[in-house]
Amino acid sequence: MKRIIPMWIAIIGGFAMMLSSFVPLAESAGEMFADVFNVVAAIAFVLGAGSLAKQHLEKLSRRDAGWGYSIITLGSFLITLFIGLLKIGIHPNPSFPQAAYSGSNDAEGSAWSWIYEYMITPLTSTMFALLAFFVASAAFRAFRAKNTEAILLLVTAFIVLLGRTFAGVVLTGWFPDWASGLRLENLSIYVMQVFNTAGNRAIMIGIALGVAATGLRILFGIDRSWLGGGDA
């Protein structure tokens, strides 16, 4: 029973979403299922927060390696929650001056805005910037001319890497107009718009058909492995 009910919810929801695309009268049914998902996901936040708290409290109580970080995690979690819920430093909406909590969290000068600007922005930007370092290390290790395909990949990489910067203009900008198609900046555009587009379209068609087949497997109840496998 624990698997039959979720399976039928998936089947009904899936067909309703499909119908809502084709039948105008069923549009609201599709919207309703999307809303239901959002509500369920929001409720699951409580479970997620509970899991996070449990995980770090246990780490603290056991004095596991790095337990100090758990204090920072829990502290940050509680402070942000407190600031967000109580709307610290936010003035009421001018339209509703009597309502203390009517202001928006986005308002300038609010505590939440401060957290956003001075904590979230630098922290997440730093993590994203790590990509530059990992790309360099991966390029050093992975781009080896092992066979014909790898050589083609290498040549393409050089064209795009140089063509996407001023280096391409410096190296091949002197090519006469009749050979302008061979300038690196033009070649890189050609590679992106022709070879890349062709390859990507093929992959996308394959993925789309894969998604359709997977969707049908789930809708028909053929594939129940996402419920833990086995018979319903």
Partner: peptide, 8 residues
């Protein structure tokens, strides 16, 4: 990008 070309 030039560094990456050099590394490759």
């Amino acid at each position: 990008h030039l560094l990456m070309v050099g590394l490759i």
